[in-house]
Design a protein around this nucleic acid. Structure first.
Lengths: 109, 109
DNA sequence: TGACAATATGTCAGTTCTGACATATCATAC
DNA sequence: GTATGATATGTCAGAACTGACATATTGTCA
């Protein structure tokens, strides 16, 4: 994970430890953050493709528009659990979910 | 998901809604539970393969022996986040994690 | 058998996540 | 312009999760 990316994440509110590796983010931390961001992007992509508003998806999942917005924005207060439940509610299969998680993000590590 | 499996999970403490589908568990609920169980099993498998005790893994992850035990037992109070973080700490790659999540469990759905 | 290490189970106070709400910003149409 | 719908941001009380601890159970030696 490069320095610019780390700075961008910290601006978003992520608290990233440092000093483990070359640019201050352990491989595990990086993988964890990247997974969550991949799920965020998948969620937005799926919702938009289905032509749902955030408010509509919120209703479908007993959540709220603001939490959906935070999920899509990659807010660090959102759990993987919530992202996964939301994606499943959008009809994403376990297989597709697994693929999203495996995904490498350009420009990292 | 069949009736016996559902009963077994409920005995473990899972609160599963009902009435959505044929045997009372929506496809999304089933997929969510199966994902967590797949991660549980992966965790145990990885820990054992590395010849670590639960207490040792707990130390490595700033957790506790009892929580590791609950993770491996598929306890519903364990989050996917914690499972994922623990697996990453054991050196599992995003790719392998994704594969675990995609996995179909014999005898379900 | 008993002693010991590992794992399982139960509980709980502190922490984190959540939905809800208010409000701000952005986009598109008129 | 400004009205309207959608999305973003900030806050917070209540819900869910967590590590820690105590204790029970299980497994494996001699």
């Amino acid at each position: 994970m490069n320095k610019a990316k780390k700075a961008k994440l910290e601006k978003k509110g992520w608290k990233l430890g440092s000093a483990d590796e070359f640019l201050g983010l352990s491989a595990e931390e990086a993988a964890y953050v990247e997974m969550k961001l991949a799920l965020s992007e998948k969620l937005k992509e799926k919702r938009v493709r289905k032509k749902l508003t955030q408010a509509e998806l919120a209703r479908m999942t007993n959540s709220s528009q603001s939490r959906i917005a935070k999920m899509e924005a990659g807010d660090p207060t959102v759990s993987i659990d919530l992202l996964v439940k939301s994606l499943l509610a959008l009809g994403v299969s376990k297989k597709e979910l697994g693929r999203s998680i495996s995904q490498e993000i350009a420009g990292t590590i």
